[in-house]
Structures are given as C-alpha cells and as structure tokens.
C-alpha cells in the first residue's frame, strides 16, 4: 500500500476536493446527529438489488444510523441464511419470490401483494424476521409490446390481447409453453391464444432482437428492466394478476425493526414506483453509473435529505 506513487495520491486528493466542491451532497456520514446504531444492509448479486440496498441504506444513514453495506452478497440462498443468522440486518426482497423461498416453494404467492406479504410474514415471524410494507415498485415477469404495435393493436393491458391473439406471435424462453406464468397462464387467465410461439431467451438479447425485427409482437420481459424505455417497449398491464406479486419489500430482523427504522423504510417504499426502478436501472446498466450514486441522486431528487 505504501508503494503507491505520489502522483496517484495527488490525483486522488484532487479528485476528492473536486468531488466535494462539485457534489454539494451532504455526505450522509457527516450528518450531525449522533449514531443510533449500526445496521448491515445486504443486496443480491444483481444491480437493481444494489440500488435498493443503497436506497434503504442511505436514507437510514441520513436518519443517523451507521450502515455497513454488503451489496452483491450473492443469491437468495446466500443472503437469506445470512439474515437468519444475524450476519446482516436487512435486505430488499421481492414479495412473491421471497415467500416462495421461505415457504419452500409451496406455491403460496399470488398476484395480490397484500396477501403475499401477509403470508410471507407468517413464515418470517417464527424466524425472528419481518417484512415491512411492500412498495408499488415491482420486478416481475411482464409482457411487453413495442410502442408502435401497442398503438396499432390498441393494447395497453393483457386482457386487450384476447380478441387479437391470433394475429400475434409470442416470444419468450423455450420453457414458456409449459410454465403457468407464461403461455398456459395467458390462455387460462386471459383467454389469449397466440398465432405462434417463438422460442427465444428469457428477457435477453434474442428477445430484444425479435422485437426489433417485429418477429414477435408480444414478449416476456422483466417489469423493471432498465432498457425498456430505450427500446421503445411498453409493458402491458397485468390486469387480472396472472403474475405473482414481486413487489419490492424490505425484509429485516425483528430486532432491527424499530419504529424509527420502519418509518424510514416505509417512507422510501411508499414513494418508489416501477418507473423509478426502470430509470435507476438504466442509469446503472446503460449509463454505467454507480448504484450508490444513483440511489443518493434519487433520494435527493425526492427531497429525502431536505
């Protein structure tokens, strides 16, 4: 460490001064209130989870907590046991997926977010954990159309597709024709029978290429993908709640869930929307900004630090 060249140190120092001068951000750790304790916030190993971890963490920091960040900690199989054993205090979960994790895939998750969170809490309670209020922001399977096609077919929600399904090609991963949330569900819940099915990938480059060439008119995406806007895709509203409610929901240890912590997190979640998630995801995945900077910018913009 001591062998770092002098110019590098100088450059770092200059960068720090410039950042401090330009940013004008009240550095959260510099808040005057004395620390109310230390909390460890974890995130899964994908960018959106890091953003959410920083959203929760930075707003708690502003409130006077000292926060340790463990972003990119791993999959739920890593993060959840860490929470149970007290190595972390909190992570941003997704209601339906977390319920299916804690109920060992019993299939309790539904399209109703309140019910899903309630069932999730039934499982969490005995483990000394708790899920707070779910946010309106969701990251779940969704079906999208290009803006042009959405206008052409006058479709904004999935039930609009029932009468015109025979003119449309559905694209998704090869497993779609056998999965209840995909083609069979669209048929049974919405009565949509598509003209054809094109096996692509799950929300990957093939799906994007197929949209671009109009090979498919309806495709499976994730509702909070950062590039939806850029690609001119609109998500069709799941008006009959086919998809399990994967709303963002903080899951924490009951010991850490003081009234004050609850109030801070509930405030974040009550304002967060899927559109916000899309915007922040695009800032991270397309514009290559850091998740913590994106989270701080969002909180500033929404006057959390005022």
């Amino acid at each position: 460490m001591n062998r770092r060249p002098l110019w590098m140190m100088a450059a770092l120092a200059v960068a720090a001064i410039v950042a401090a001068a330009c940013g004008g951000t009240p550095s959260s750790s510099a808040t005057s209130t004395p620390s109310k304790g230390t909390l460890t916030v974890a995130g899964f190993n994908f960018p959106e989870s890091s953003i959410l971890a920083y959203l929760y963490g930075k707003s708690l920091e502003h409130d006077g907590y000292k926060i340790n960040y463990k972003v990119n900690l791993g999959t739920r199989e890593v993060v959840a046991p860490a929470l149970e054993s007290g190595q972390i205090d909190l992570y941003a979960g997704y209601a339906a997926t977390d319920l299916e994790y804690y109920d060992k895939k019993a299939g309790e998750a539904t399209g109703d977010v309140t019910l899903t969170v309630q069932r999730l809490n039934n499982h969490l309670q005995s483990m000394g954990l708790v899920a707070l209020n779910a946010s309106a922001a969701v990251d779940q399977n969704a079906f999208a159309m290009t803006k042009a096609n959405s206008q052409k077919y006058n479709a904004t929600k999935l039930s609009d597709l029932a009468p015109i399904g025979n003119q449309l090609v559905l694209g998704a991963g090869p497993e779609c024709p056998t999965r209840p949330y995909c083609e069979p569900g669209l048929k049974s819940t919405y009565g949509i029978t598509f003209k054809d099915f094109k096996a692509l990938d799950t929300d990957g480059p093939l799906t994007r290429a197929a949209f671009a060439s109009n090979t498919i008119q309806v495709g499976l995406v994730f509702s909070s993908d950062g590039d939806l806007t850029k690609l001119g895709l609109v998500v069709l509203q799941d008006d009959k709640h086919l998809e399990a409610a994967d709303n963002v929901v903080p899951i924490l240890r009951q010991q850490a869930a003081t009234d004050e912590v609850r109030a801070v997190l509930n405030k974040v979640d009550s304002n967060l929307t899927t559109t916000d998630l899309i915007t922040m995801n695009s800032q991270v995945s397309i514009q290559h900004q850091d998740p913590d900077a994106v989270a701080v910018a969002y909180l500033q913009q929404h006057a959390y630090f005022a």
Partner: peptide
Amino acid sequence: AAFVAGGGLGRYIVDGYAT
C-alpha cells in the same frame, strides 16, 4: 442455430434442456 432462436433439429436439444 437454436441458440440464436433459429429452427432446425437443435430446437429439440435447446428446448428439451430448458424445460
């Protein structure tokens, strides 16, 4: 070809694996 959404007999291999 099936890996880039093409047709052909590879479809069975890719789809069979996915499902």
